[in-house]
Design a protein around this nucleic acid. Structure first.
Lengths: 135, 135
DNA sequence: TAGTTAATGATAGTTATTATCATTAAGGAG
DNA sequence: CTCCTTAATGATAATAACTATCATTAACTA
């Protein structure tokens, strides 16, 4: 029973995800195209979609940004978007934090919360250091 | 010093936001167009953008949804997206906690958190009731 | 090695949104 | 109230980010 074929294209996407930081589909395309010029965008989008759906990679939608970003799945973490340089950073965090957030929700009005997606905003280490955090 | 003009179009957008629940630009267009057929989409998008930027309305980006949604600004609250019907619901929260979250909370790898955007996932009251929460 | 068919890539199509620009109308001056 | 300035509008073209179609290619297994 053939279910899934391991293609060069899929491998390149995984590779791009390891090399690049939170790349967009376009970023990944540039990377893959430079190593395998015949790759097509349809293939790229198709694979990014199916891989996200089956959970082998993660799609990150940054509010306000048109293009989606992608992340390899390592350990659970959150993302922070720097208001100065726009960089997307990984944020390790005590899962207790999210638990705390949820417990503070006073009256969900009957909405049953099962999970949540969070994007933090602030300053990345680089931008803090380059201005002493006084931006 | 003329700075801003009060147009019928802007009033209609505000009105749509009161009448509809978390509408997309298209939803708002339908509403406005039915009351004022000559309104153009460019005007709509233009106003939604400027009003969001100046803070008189709020744009909501639901991860995975192509089209943005909009919200009138009343009191601070979160949003929940129902996994069954897709409805976007308001989730009330303690304003004091919102304030607490705004200040730098943890120390996640040098990223200075200033605020956060959260979208909850789960079941809305309607979908819980129609299946006894056993979906 | 061959055959089956999953996967690809070229391309056209779609959706959401933005830019351009000639025309209109809000609202203050007179 | 009428005129004038120019902010705002609306028609339209353009753009960005995907998504669908389909003939062709290439994984994989028998």
């Amino acid at each position: 029973m053939v279910v899934q074929r391991n293609t060069r294209q899929k491998a390149l996407i995984k590779e791009a995800l390891q090399e690049l930081s939170h790349p967009t589909a376009e970023d990944i395309y540039q990377y893959a195209h430079s190593k395998y010029p015949s790759i097509g965008k349809a293939t790229l989008y198709r694979n990014l979609k199916t891989m996200s759906e089956e959970g082998s990679i993660r799609k990150i939608d940054v509010p306000g940004e048109m293009a989606g970003r992608f992340d390899e799945i390592t350990k659970p973490h959150f993302h922070g978007v720097c208001r100065e340089c726009g960089a997307v950073c990984d944020i390790e965090m005590d899962p207790a934090y999210m638990k705390a957030l949820r417990s503070e929700i006073t009256e969900p009005g009957g909405f049953l919360i099962e999970n949540q997606e969070v994007i933090f905003r602030g300053l990345c280490p680089n931008c803090i250091n380059s201005n002493g955090g006084k931006i």
